[in-house]
Deep mutational scan, measured.
Amino acid sequence: WVPTKREEKYGVAFYNYDARGADELSLQIGDTVHILETYEGWYRGYTLRKKSKKGIFPASYIHLKE
């Protein structure tokens, strides 16, 4: 896992994603996520609506905010 280059990196989910394991994070369309790390097509972070739950999710489900 590699920390993100920018201190504040955010994105928005444009697909729903159902977590398949305890380390994964479920997403709903429109969720804003804070991205902490990246690795081979995956991000690690949390949604702003539930900051206490961190997990991994596919990068392809996220539109990055500039």
Rank of each mutant, 00 (worst) to 15 (best):
V2E: 09
P3H: 04
P3C: 10
P3D: 09
P3T: 08
T4A: 15
T4R: 06
T4V: 14
T4H: 09
K5Q: 10
R6V: 11
R6A: 13
R6C: 14
E8R: 09
E8Y: 12
E8V: 10
K9N: 06
Y10P: 01
G11N: 01
G11M: 05
G11W: 06
V12L: 05
A13I: 04
F14V: 15
Y15G: 13
N16H: 09
N16C: 12
N16V: 07
Y17K: 00
Y17N: 00
Y17F: 08
Y17L: 00
Y17P: 01
D18A: 12
D18R: 12
D18K: 13
D18H: 13
A22Y: 08
A22G: 10
A22T: 11
A22F: 10
D23F: 08
D23N: 11
D23E: 11
L25A: 01
L25E: 00
L25I: 14
L25K: 00
S26F: 04
S26R: 04
L27M: 01
L27W: 03
L27P: 00
L27Y: 01
Q28E: 10
G30A: 02
G30S: 02
D31I: 06
D31W: 06
T32P: 07
T32C: 15
T32W: 15
T32N: 08
T32M: 14
V33C: 03
H34T: 07
I35A: 01
L36I: 10
L36F: 07
L36A: 02
L36D: 05
L36V: 06
E37T: 05
T38H: 10
T38M: 12
Y39V: 07
Y39Q: 10
E40C: 13
E40A: 13
E40G: 13
E40F: 08
G41L: 06
G41M: 05
G41S: 07
W42L: 02
W42A: 01
Y43M: 08
R44A: 04
R44L: 13
G45T: 02
G45Y: 08
Y46R: 04
T47C: 13
T47H: 10
L48D: 09
L48I: 10
R49K: 14
R49P: 12
R49L: 08
R49S: 13
R49I: 07
R49G: 14
K50S: 13
K50C: 15
K50H: 14
K51D: 08
S52Y: 12
K53W: 06
K53M: 10
K53T: 08
K54M: 14
G55V: 02
I56N: 05
I56C: 10
I56Y: 09
I56R: 08
F57S: 00
F57T: 01
F57I: 01
P58I: 12
P58R: 04
P58K: 03
A59V: 08
S60N: 09
S60A: 14
S60H: 12
Y61S: 09
Y61L: 13
I62H: 01
I62Q: 01
I62F: 01
I62Y: 01
H63I: 14
H63P: 01
L64H: 03
K65R: 13
E66R: 13
E66I: 13
E66A: 14
